[in-house]
Amino acid sequence: MQWKRGDQEAPRVLLPLVYDELRRLARHHLRAERSDHTLQSTALVHEAYLRLVKPGSLQLESRQHFFALASQLMREILVDYARGRRAAKRDGGNRLTLDEAAELSESKGVDLLALDDALNELAKMSPRQSRIVELKFFGGLRIGEISEVLGVSSATVERDWAVARAWLHREISRTACDES
């Protein structure tokens, strides 16, 4: 796969490909590691990257694009799973034989649907803060990597991360209270 510097079309062309690959990897991991509940979406993103990209063929800009894209897709995949799982529960809950969502969506007690909604709200006030959370939480990127992807200083990423986390925590807690 060639994805060169300055090739603006590449992300759009690759999007379905990356998405399919992430889904496939998610299913594969769930079958292979059902006894192991430590599956992390970040591992999937990493593995998808290695599978999709020929060694050494990516230059810096496209590597950044990839992680931004993969983080966004991982968010979509996990939220889709969580939504499907909630719908299945409403239908009676017993008809699923392989509940892929169960393990993927329960990331240590965070309600992914509430988080997804809150991130959409946050994006209206600060698109950058919302993206930082996406890159960090769903993509597993570190502060320095996020700083490269977004072209802002690490200090700015740290600041936005702390502020966004406080806001998201409050927002999700409120949602939880409203629902109970």
Binding site: Q40, H46, K54, S107, V110, G140, R142, R165
Partner: peptide, 20 residues
Amino acid sequence: FLNTLAAPTGFLGSRHPAIA
């Protein structure tokens, strides 16, 4: 909160030959 999915240190980035 939101830190539980963080990748292990050195997980992504330039250390892997494919991501050089």
